[in-house]
Amino acid sequence: MTLLILGLTTFLGVHSTRIFADGFRNAQVAKLGLNGWKAVYSIVSIAGLMLIVYGYATARMTPVVIWSPPLWSRHVAALLTVAAFVLLAAAYVPGTRIKRVVGHPMVAGVKVWAFAHLIANGTLADIVLFGSFLAWAILDYASARRRDRTAGPEYARGSRTRDLSALIVGLAAWAAFAFWLHVWLIGVPPFGG
């Protein structure tokens, strides 16, 4: 559990600089240049992610069960993760109306993904992992929306075609992950088995 917590602190810590230390971030960008800052940010993120993966895998070997989720929670989680994948896709498909309405669809998608996993999993490691991501995403989304109100960004009006593209990409990514990649990467079939 220690490695999981260290990984979460590292990964979410570096991803929280815009929330808690925007001045520090701006100073580092000025000192290192944008690409230099992105390089440091990426290296720290990868190190944190590796610790999360290893720490979570280790913690799952001796699970501490806090609660046993009811069967219906898996079905709700599956539906919620569909929405999460569509939001993630909308973050990268330029000019979606989804982005115009949501503002920060990737962070919103992380919130939905983390919540879905919290209701469908009941071990201490699950609660620490997904609870941390949910708390971070809530804080990050609120911080980003505050910055938006100050800066007043203008999102493209978007079109139905762009939204449809985000929907198709999101659904395809969800299906690939739900039916193949989740069990291959995580070792757990999302639909039981």
Rank of each mutant, 00 (worst) to 15 (best):
A151Q: 13
A89N: 03
L79S: 13
L4F: 04
V53R: 09
A151M: 12
R162N: 08
Q28N: 12
V44F: 07
V188L: 11
P153S: 06
K99G: 04
A156N: 02
G131T: 02
T150L: 15
N121E: 05
S165T: 15
S68E: 15
L139R: 02
I43M: 11
G48W: 08
L124N: 10
T81K: 13
D163A: 12
W67F: 15
S45A: 09
T17W: 10
S165P: 09
I98W: 09
T81H: 09
L12A: 06
V44S: 00
L80W: 05
Y56T: 11
A144C: 09
R162Q: 15
N121G: 02
A84R: 12
N121Q: 05
F191H: 07
M1A: 04
W136F: 07
G187H: 04
A135G: 13
I138L: 13
V44D: 03
R100Q: 11
V101T: 13
H182N: 05
G192K: 01
L129H: 08
R149F: 05
Y41C: 01
A144N: 11
V169S: 07
V64Q: 14
V82Y: 10
I186S: 14
A116G: 03
T62R: 14
R147A: 08
T150Y: 14
R18S: 14
G33T: 01
V169P: 09
R157M: 11
F179D: 07
G23E: 15
